[in-house]
Nucleic acid binder design. Sequence first.
DNA 1: AGTGACTTCTACCTGTACAA
DNA 2: TTGTACAGGTAGAAGTCACT
Length: 213
Amino acid sequence: VQLVEKNLVRAVADLYRLERELLAGLERMGEKSADKLLAQLERSKTPPLDRLLYALGIREVGEVTATALARHFGSLDRILAAGEEELVEVPDVGPVVASHVHAFFREPHNRDVLEQLEQAGLRWRPLETHGREQPLAGQTWVLTGALGMPRARAKTLLEALGAKVAGSVSAKTSVVLAGAEAGAKLRKAESLGVRVIDEEGFRALLESYGTVL
DNA sequence: AGTGACTTCTACCTGTACAA
DNA sequence: TTGTACAGGTAGAAGTCACT
């Protein structure tokens, strides 16, 4: 907030031009926070394509849709060039989402922002494709409860094995990974007869596929 | 060193919009 | 019409910082 109030950041790309001394001088922002912020900004300069799409804040495009788009097109240029008809071909994308995406990239202001980010040093990475086999391909997993590892970590591991990780339990869910204090999702999984696995079982499964934790 | 203010992270829940 | 995912709100725990 301060950064905006003090007119230090007027556009997203301005973030990449901030300096350490300047940040450390702000209220409630010591040197440690300044270093952390800068380190995070540096890391954020090379987001995977799906994260970049998600971060653009296009209507109806959340993490799942962003990943689907990234997977289908493979590069930002191809998404920029895609017409609505091509966008509709992406799984889980219908005419409404397609028109939002298409309109977003046709907006000159949005094109400018992308260009500024590129000039500031932003470089997206292609989606990580794993050469290894994907034993969980076609399965949909849902995480619930407190896990011994960050959710993002568990999600990455599952996706590396080919599984899709969804946010809510449905009849299509293959497996629910339930940590401690699992709530409504676990009950729903039980009522739907979805297979439930605890963290211990999850770790054993990962190890059986040779995944290093 | 202790304390309070504040942020960040993680997780859950619910309403809503969308795709099939 | 139904199933699904997204988005936004909320809350608790943990971490960080400024101040005394």
